[in-house]
């Protein structure tokens, strides 16, 4: 699975892109965030407060309780601030 990070999530994790193969118990985006938070201190800093995060699966916004299903690309980022 391809992971993309943006804005301060990317800066804290230390990269904008990584590939992971989550274990079977990781069923939803929220599960994925909790699992990823254990990968490094940077991940923990970026992903430790899921209420501050938003996500997209295969380039569509989704709530964090969405099942990952056959997701190929998951993006994790702060609430958007364009315009």
């Amino acid at each position: 699975m391809d992971l993309l990070y943006f804005a301060w999530v990317r800066e804290s994790v230390g990269t904008g892109h990584e590939q992971v193969d989550p274990p079977a118990h990781v069923a939803t985006v929220a599960d994925l965030i909790a699992w990823l938070a254990g990968r490094s201190p940077g991940h923990a800093e970026a992903l430790g407060e899921p209420a501050r995060l938003r996500a997209a699966i295969d380039q569509r916004f989704v709530p964090l309780d969405t099942p990952l299903g056959a997701a190929r690309e998951v993006a994790i980022f702060p609430p958007v601030t364009g315009g």
């Binding site: 943006f6 804005a7 997209a56 958007v80």
Partner: peptide, 14 residues
């Protein structure tokens, strides 16, 4: 369009 763009399109300002 400008209202929706602010909430529905992924951009981040620093």
């Amino acid at each position: 369009l400008i209202d929706r763009l602010k909430t529905d399109a992924p951009f981040w300002k620093k």
